[in-house]
Every structure is written in C-alpha cells, then in structure tokens.
Amino acid sequence: MSVIIYHNPACGTSRNTLAMIRASGVEPVIVAYLTTPPNREEIRDLARRSGIPLRDLLREKGTPFADLGLDDPSLSDEQLLDAIELHPVLLNRPIVTSGKGVRLCRPSEKVLDLIPPLPEDFIKEDGEKVKKA
C-alpha cells in the first residue's frame, strides 16, 4: 500500500499519525511540507480528493492566519492558495493519502480509514489508547 503523509515533526498529531501508519506495517512517503511544500495544484487536488473545501485545510493556530486576514469568507481559493504558497505553515497537518482516499487526520485516528488494520492497540504520545480494529 502506498501512503503519503504531509508531515510536521513538531506536531504531536502528525507524529502520532505517522506512528500509527508505521504500526500498521506501512512505511509512508514523508513530505516535510514546511521545507518542501506542495505546489498550488497539489494543494487544490488534496482538497478536492479529501472532499473538503480548500479553506478547511487552513491552520489558524500558530500561523499568520489572522494577520493575513484569512478569516474573510469572501477570499477566493486562489487568494488562499497565494497565502499558503507564501506561508506553508498555513496548511493544516497531517494530510494523508492512500489508495483508500485523502484525509486531514485531525484527530490522528482519522488515518485508520486509510491504512491496514493495526495489529495491536496503539498508545499515543499522551498515553491515550487507540483500539485495534
């Protein structure tokens, strides 16, 4: 199974998602999107394939979201893509793709729909248990 994770190693949710993918027996392609950001067409495609509006892929916390006025609902997707292109940190994480689909994996358990079943219960960094399927 081919899996890609758009990953930020400083993010606990992203680290837990990556660990769950690996626990399922899959070694994903890791895209460190802050240093190697996807281009605007790739971002547009991720939003389309995930079935959510591009705006829902934006991260507000710890980003220049408010300073850039991105809370304005009249902004077009092109304007949002311009902002993400200049500030990749605006792209929420982790985004995971597999043959089963594309998801913004917040919470990290959303990845379970995209990977093989976990062979055993998984313990997240904070001690929370994720039951195997």
Rank of each mutant, 00 (worst) to 15 (best):
L57S: 02
L57Q: 01
L57Y: 04
L57A: 05
L57W: 01
L57P: 01
L58S: 02
L58E: 06
L58I: 04
L58N: 04
R59F: 11
R59L: 12
R59Y: 11
E60F: 14
E60C: 12
K61A: 14
K61G: 06
K61D: 12
G62K: 03
G62R: 01
G62N: 12
G62F: 12
G62V: 11
T63S: 15
T63N: 13
T63Y: 12
P64L: 02
P64Y: 01
P64M: 02
F65L: 07
F65R: 03
F65G: 09
F65K: 04
F65D: 03
A66S: 13
A66L: 14
A66N: 12
D67L: 09
D67T: 08
D67W: 01
D67E: 14
L68S: 07
L68E: 03
L68Y: 06
G69V: 01
G69R: 10
G69E: 09
L70I: 07
L70R: 01
L70Q: 02
L70H: 08
L70T: 04
D71Q: 14
D71W: 08
D71P: 03
D72L: 12
D72A: 13
D72N: 15
D72K: 12
D72V: 06
P73H: 01
P73F: 02
P73K: 03
S74F: 04
S74D: 15
S74Y: 07
L75D: 00
L75N: 01
S76N: 09
S76H: 09
D77S: 05
D77P: 07
D77H: 05
D77Y: 00
D77E: 14
E78V: 03
E78T: 09
Q79E: 15
Q79A: 14
Q79I: 02
L80E: 00
L80T: 00
L80D: 00
L80Y: 08
L80I: 15
L81R: 06
L81N: 04
L81Y: 09
L81E: 06
L81A: 07
D82Q: 07
D82N: 10
D82P: 04
D82A: 05
D82C: 04
A83C: 11
A83T: 11
I84L: 08
E85R: 05
E85W: 10
E85A: 10
E85F: 06
E85G: 02
L86G: 15
L86F: 08
L86R: 15
L86S: 15
H87S: 08
H87L: 06
H87P: 07
H87V: 06
H87R: 11
P88A: 06
P88V: 01
P88F: 03
P88Q: 02
